[in-house]
Simulated scan of single mutants.
Amino acid sequence: MMRVLLFVGTNIAVLVLLNIVLFIVQSVFHVRLGNYSGLLLMAAVMGMGGSFISLAMSKWIAKRTTGAQVITQPRNESERWLLDTVKSEAQKAGIGMPEVAVYDAPDMNAFATGMSRNNALVAVSTGLLQSMDRNQVQAVLGHEITHVANGDMVTMGLIQGVLNTFVIFLARIIGTVVDNALSGNRNSESSSGGFFYFIIVMVLQVALGFLASMVVMWFSRWREFRADAGGARLGGRDNMISALQRLAGNQGETALPKAIQAFGISGEGGISRLFMSHPPIEERIAALRAAA
């Protein structure tokens, strides 16, 4: 489970930082956005900018939060096989060779992230390498390579950027209305508002962002089915099904940091379906069998 929450969490942090900077600039220099088109432009710059800054940072953050060690020179036969398998599948998928890394964790998981198809990172846990046979691992790697080949992270960036734009825009529109109503329209001439306006906007952005995350999670679930199909093509349908069945016993036991849990292959459970980054494994297996 490791691509979405890393991205979304970083995205939220960047947005908060950008908002604080903007409020400071507005207060110090008395900058005002006097019309909706100006506000929408500012929201688009902040929203899309925050999203793609998150995307650009995704590999670095993934390495830092998991402690993933990139394999530059294979130290043993297992690492050599891992590199060769990723290289072979990347060539079949028509993408550049991604960085390959291993991180120390007991759970069975793997993830891929990166700015583009030719600048990606594929990482697997030690738990996955120890608990699955090579046919299963090959299918899991095919699943992750397919995420990269499909450009899922870039598409996620675009979706998140558009949603960010409307979250920022609507939060400020609603915030202005609420602030004016509570202050008796004393702030109606100022679109920058004061400290209370800042608090209202921050609360609204969190609330609206929570709703927007449902759209992001829907896309995340949909792309898992596509990645499973790609894993079946690259690693064998039976191997992909076998790997998912093996992962079924791993549900609820992920050791990934919360910020990047949605980026892994194993998915998540115990959450309302609207906020699940991965479909239930039973549905994924059923989709593979139906496609066959």
Rank of each mutant, 00 (worst) to 15 (best):
M2L: 15
R3A: 15
R3T: 14
V14H: 01
I24Y: 12
L33I: 02
N35R: 11
N35W: 10
N35I: 06
L39H: 05
L40W: 05
L41W: 11
M42W: 10
V45S: 05
G47R: 00
S51D: 05
A56I: 01
S58E: 03
W60F: 14
K63H: 11
R64D: 01
T65F: 13
T65Q: 14
G67R: 09
A68S: 06
A68W: 02
A68M: 06
P74T: 03
R75T: 11
R75Y: 04
S78H: 09
L82E: 05
T85Y: 04
S88Y: 07
A90G: 15
I95L: 08
G96Y: 12
M97R: 07
E99C: 03
E99S: 04
E99A: 00
V102H: 05
A105I: 13
D107T: 05
A112T: 11
G114K: 10
M115C: 04
R117S: 04
L121Y: 04
A123R: 02
V124L: 03
T126N: 14
M132V: 09
N135Q: 15
N135M: 09
Q136M: 01
Q138L: 07
Q138F: 13
A139W: 03
A139L: 00
G142A: 15
H147F: 02
M153C: 05
M153D: 00
M153E: 04
G157L: 00
L158G: 13
L163W: 03
L163H: 01
N164D: 09
N164V: 06
T165H: 06
F166G: 08
I168V: 11
I168L: 10
I168H: 02
I173Y: 05
A181T: 11
A181D: 07
L182H: 14
S183L: 09
S183P: 06
R186C: 03
S191W: 15
G194T: 04
F198T: 07
F198K: 06
I199N: 09
A207Y: 03
A207G: 09
L208T: 06
G209D: 04
G209P: 11
L211V: 14
S213N: 15
V216W: 05
V216G: 00
M217K: 13
M217P: 07
W218A: 14
W218S: 10
F225W: 12
D228P: 08
G230F: 00
G230R: 01
G231A: 07
A232V: 04
L234Q: 03
L234F: 13
G236F: 05
R237Q: 12
R237D: 07
S242E: 12
S242Y: 10
A243C: 11
L244I: 02
Q245Y: 05
L247R: 01
G249V: 08
G249Q: 09
N250H: 12
Q251A: 09
Q251W: 06
G252L: 01
E253A: 12
A255R: 08
I260R: 13
Q261L: 08
F263H: 14
G264H: 10
I265H: 13
E268D: 07
G269Q: 10
G270F: 07
S272N: 11
R273H: 15
R273G: 09
L274Y: 15
F275H: 03
H278E: 06
E283R: 08
R284E: 00
R284H: 12
A286N: 04
A286M: 05
A291G: 03
A291L: 10
